[in-house]
Write a protein that binds this DNA or RNA. Sequence first.
DNA 1: ATGAAAGCGCTAACAA
DNA 2: TTGTTAGCGCTTTCAT
Lengths: 307, 307
Amino acid sequence: MIATIGYVRDLAAANLAKGRLYRFVFVLPQSNNFFMRELRHEVEGAIVRSGAERVSIRIVQVPPFDAPALAAALDELRHGPKDEEPAGIAFVAVDAPEVREAVARLSRSGIPVVSLVSDLPGSARDHYTGIDNFAAGRTAGSLMGRFLGQGSEAVVAVMAGSMLLRDHRERLQGFEASVGEFYPHIRLLPVIECRDDSPTAERLLTALMVQHPEIAGIYSLGAGNRGLVRSLQGVLTEHRPVVIAHELTAATRSALHEGSVDAVLSQNAAREVRSTIRVLKARADGMSFVEQDERIGIDIFLKDNLP
Amino acid sequence: MIATIGYVRDLAAANLAKGRLYRFVFVLPQSNNFFMRELRHEVEGAIVRSGAERVSIRIVQVPPFDAPALAAALDELRHGPKDEEPAGIAFVAVDAPEVREAVARLSRSGIPVVSLVSDLPGSARDHYTGIDNFAAGRTAGSLMGRFLGQGSEAVVAVMAGSMLLRDHRERLQGFEASVGEFYPHIRLLPVIECRDDSPTAERLLTALMVQHPEIAGIYSLGAGNRGLVRSLQGVLTEHRPVVIAHELTAATRSALHEGSVDAVLSQNAAREVRSTIRVLKARADGMSFVEQDERIGIDIFLKDNLP
DNA sequence: ATGAAAGCGCTAACAA
DNA sequence: TTGTTAGCGCTTTCAT
């Protein structure tokens, strides 16, 4: 009806008129691993830039891996003065029922919610900003299979942060599925868990390589890659295993460059933060967004296509 | 001075007051290959969305590979009524002196200019939106080397669209450099040029494979991949060469899926268009932008991480 | 030169 | 309910 005339509502004018301020909250784990720090850093960058855009972003930190604390933090945001109610919330999910319930309460209050980096399927979240971790694991499997080449049995080690983390579990599943289907000559050692901690990663991997000198490949699907790189330092070049890791960090970047790591799968934290803000804004305005535009791809980095 | 007070100019209000309209022009080759069509399609999409954003985008088509025509089109844009002068121009460069000069004239007129997909180094363009094609070629070289594995001499065919295209030349250089340095057992056949035409590609490749049945790898660095895929159809699975191509299209996507193509390097046309508009807007406002945010990465797709 | 006033497209507060 | 008016932060015009 209105559209027939060719009318388009001028959102900028509307926002000016009502002195609108989009209050968004990012609930982030106070983890110390590189990726979470980067994520926090990107949100802080967005805060600086947000001045010009009628956006006000606040970061709320919660203890990592702590579902009750996360749920409490989410509930907290629903209270407080009515005019300070957030216009949207982004949070890194911990996969637990109480978190799902807190999200349901937010949703019932009409507050847009976006899960970030780690998803909460089956919850009332409006959107998930992050990569498909199952596909990431499959991709790692393919690369491992291709890089190792055909031949007799090859032994591959897998290191995760924690099997309690949904994204780590999904990566592992994808990796196992891909290797099992296409590269049956690869034998996977039992997963070791380094709790995303570098010293632990170094210790565990070094021990594993002593125990299994025949290791031909390593897939590190979590954090703690400084330790991974250090454990590789003693290995002779000609015995270097094929190494695939996650997240482009200072450690993985230089390891790629010097050849001790062969491929890095990564997600772009800056892009994730910007996308999240666009999505929250759209939802806050009751606007739709192009799902396809907001998909976060799995970046594959070799030494040759480093940004 | 002003900044000390914490003042931030409200661009939205300013634009409202002056009824600003950003007039941008995209100068695109009227090529029929999939990628250029997609690029055009994305610009058309931006035109639709632009209504709400005080942006008006116009597409000017020029004959492909035609430097004089492109230069003339660029000059044309500087004339016409003063109040319809574009606030920014994006164009797919043809690497020639007359184009450089036309860009210099635009620049002198104070019109922001962005080169898109194919760059024009050394010209007065304000920005280049597109991938690093040399790095893309190197990446293809690494993948080819790793996928072929160590061993005795391996013969690899290279197919380009045209050596007159700067992006194709750069990809080839990167590929040759990478293979030459790290995989000396790979022998490259002389480049064949299919002029980005599928039937030609099919014909040339089929002939080449008859002539060189020992071909173990194919790098297709231009367009015309329907033809590439067709030429592969007759090859027995166990003799299938390692195939690396550029641009994720219907043809390369299904070929990846069914296993006749091993990897696809790609650039995201939608992202390129959006980035270009952001950059032009920033320049038109005399604002800076985060260079890093606007870098277009080289996407690597395996069958496992297709979007 | 400097200042006051009108108005861009909208919303919110108020009147009728 | 429907209509009117003031004003959001800026630029532009017109007057001082």
